[in-house]
Amino acid sequence: MGLDLGRELEVHADALRLRAERTKILASNIANESTPGYKARDIDFRSSLQQMASGEAADGLSLSTEDDLLYRVPNHPTEDGNTVEIGVEQAEFSQNTSDFQMSLTFINMKIKGLEKAITGNS
């Protein structure tokens, strides 16, 4: 009976891939803060992660299509149609970065635990 490292780390690895993709989306929002008509986008992290875990998402991650991205509803719409609110985007980006680091920490702890189990160190 072999060790399936992929299965052991699956949810955290999926979370890292999803958080990396979300980082790109949020960075795009921030970069387009002053683009007239630009609509801020985001993902529903929880439902996207559930799709990945259940195998519903094609190739694990299906955020490449427009249907997977949600529009962010602005608190204060602008006259030029841009829905990016820089404070909101920066806060979401910061939280996403913290969550990414937390997932990395979980993976690191899991690997260290597996290493101890394999080598017999306590």
Results as ranks from 00 to 15, higher is better:
residue 101 Q to V: 03
residue 67 D to E: 15
residue 82 N to Q: 14
residue 16 L to H: 00
residue 2 G to I: 13
residue 55 G to D: 12
residue 30 I to E: 06
residue 25 I to S: 05
residue 120 G to Q: 12
residue 26 L to P: 01
residue 43 I to W: 08
residue 6 G to S: 07
residue 69 L to C: 10
residue 25 I to F: 09
residue 9 L to S: 00
residue 15 A to H: 01
residue 52 M to F: 04
residue 1 M to N: 10
residue 61 L to M: 10
residue 31 A to Y: 11
residue 4 D to S: 08
residue 12 H to F: 05
residue 59 D to L: 11
residue 22 R to A: 11
residue 122 S to T: 08
residue 42 D to R: 13
residue 41 R to A: 15
residue 5 L to Q: 01
residue 101 Q to P: 05
residue 36 P to E: 15
residue 63 L to G: 11
residue 79 E to A: 10
residue 54 S to D: 14
residue 12 H to P: 02
residue 122 S to I: 04
residue 27 A to Y: 06
residue 68 D to M: 07
residue 110 K to Q: 04
residue 96 N to C: 11
residue 12 H to E: 02
residue 116 K to D: 08
residue 72 R to T: 13
residue 60 G to A: 03
residue 22 R to M: 14
residue 104 L to K: 01
residue 115 E to C: 02
residue 59 D to V: 13
residue 102 M to F: 12
residue 70 L to N: 08
residue 64 S to T: 08
residue 43 I to Q: 05
residue 86 I to S: 12
residue 15 A to D: 02
residue 2 G to H: 07
residue 75 N to H: 12
residue 67 D to K: 15
residue 6 G to C: 05
residue 60 G to V: 03
residue 92 E to N: 10
residue 28 S to M: 14
residue 60 G to T: 03
residue 28 S to H: 13
residue 90 Q to G: 04
residue 30 I to R: 08
residue 79 E to V: 09
residue 53 A to H: 08
residue 34 S to F: 13
residue 100 F to E: 00
residue 8 E to C: 00
residue 46 R to P: 01
residue 99 D to R: 03
residue 44 D to F: 12
residue 104 L to P: 02
residue 7 R to T: 12
residue 93 F to C: 15
residue 67 D to H: 14
residue 53 A to K: 12
residue 63 L to S: 09
residue 105 T to Y: 01
residue 14 D to G: 05
residue 35 T to M: 12
residue 6 G to K: 02
residue 28 S to R: 14
residue 110 K to Y: 01
residue 1 M to Y: 08
residue 80 D to V: 07
residue 17 R to Y: 03
residue 117 A to Y: 02
residue 43 I to Y: 06
residue 58 A to F: 05
residue 105 T to H: 01
residue 72 R to V: 15
residue 25 I to A: 07
residue 109 M to V: 03
residue 48 S to G: 07
residue 16 L to D: 00
residue 42 D to P: 08
residue 3 L to W: 01
residue 58 A to K: 04
residue 112 K to M: 09
residue 41 R to C: 15
residue 93 F to T: 14
residue 31 A to V: 13
residue 24 K to N: 06
residue 121 N to S: 07
residue 97 T to Y: 10
residue 40 A to E: 07
residue 73 V to C: 12
residue 72 R to D: 11
residue 66 E to H: 10
residue 69 L to T: 10
residue 8 E to N: 00
residue 2 G to T: 09
residue 39 K to V: 14
residue 109 M to K: 03
residue 114 L to H: 12
residue 41 R to G: 13
residue 51 Q to Y: 06
residue 103 S to Q: 04
residue 31 A to I: 14
residue 82 N to S: 15
residue 51 Q to S: 13
residue 78 T to H: 11
residue 26 L to M: 11
residue 50 Q to F: 09
residue 55 G to R: 12
residue 16 L to N: 00
residue 84 V to P: 10
residue 70 L to P: 03
residue 113 G to H: 00
residue 29 N to I: 07
residue 108 N to S: 11
residue 104 L to S: 02
residue 81 G to S: 12
residue 9 L to Y: 00
residue 90 Q to M: 12
residue 93 F to S: 14
residue 44 D to G: 14
residue 4 D to R: 04
residue 45 F to H: 03
residue 103 S to N: 03
residue 77 P to H: 15
residue 40 A to T: 07
residue 6 G to W: 01
